[in-house]
Amino acid sequence: MKSARKKAIAGKVLVYVILIIIAALMIIPFIWMLSASIKSDREVFQMNPFVLIPENPKWSNYHDIWTKIPMLKFVENTVFLTIVVTFLQLLTSSFAAYSFAKLEFKHKNTLFFAYIATIAMPWQVYMVPQFIMMRKFGLNDKLLAIICLQAFSAFGVFMMKQFYEDIPDELCEAARIDGMSEYRIYASIMLPLSKPALSTLTIFTFVNTWNDYLGPLIYLKSEAKKTIQLGLKMFISQYSSDYGLIMAGSVLSLIPVLAVFLCLQKYFVEGVASTGLKG
């Protein structure tokens, strides 16, 4: 009995040691980013000796980022895009995924295959035909172009479908026998049950849209429509690279993403109290 407890304690200690090592590995880049964001160009790449906080911290980087480029406008655009895309993505994906996971219909496998197949295609392959098509629709240099590109991704449908499949069919069957319509089942049974999946998808979509670079680069050209990532790239010019500013921008752009993660992560925890793997 005693040795078992000892073993348990040793196990716990081991788990914590590993966790702390992992946490350290994970946090290094962020610390480095913070440190680089208050350095001058030359100090950023100085390794020998490496200093965390330079003698003369260049706080001005955090000020310049707002004045050197119209960062506020970029933030506005990015926030708008991210919110719209995430909302559309969640709504349409979970809707379609319900059908794929819980309903039987003609051409189900063919349609689903079409989704999977497109995930496998690198965007670079169809970027040009897509661009020519979008321009024909009059979407060049419109924020709407990015929404159209991002909001209907196959990834979301695939992910939601996999989660719905794990929810027992019996729940739906019972509801059907009770005379509920499929729409009611989706709204009152599936949606509430899929909070963890929905929050996961929210985070992924949010991060993707927030950090997207190539899409905005191709489609958004006028200054008033650019996004944060394009703004950050503006600093990297051919003949000089302003790393301190880029890092300051990266730190700023990271904050909303982390905030969203922190807000949503409680949904992963939900139910753990009753389901946790108790050793």
């Binding site: 970027m127 661009f131 190539l214 050209k221």
Partner: peptide, 22 residues
């Protein structure tokens, strides 16, 4: 002036000039 950024300038430009309608 339309700023296409320097890093991928020629790529973006060539994409923009692809097909008709630029």
């Amino acid at each position: 002036m339309v700023d296409l950024g320097s890093t991928d300038y020629m790529t973006v430009l060539a994409t923009e000039l692809s097909g008709e309608g630029s």
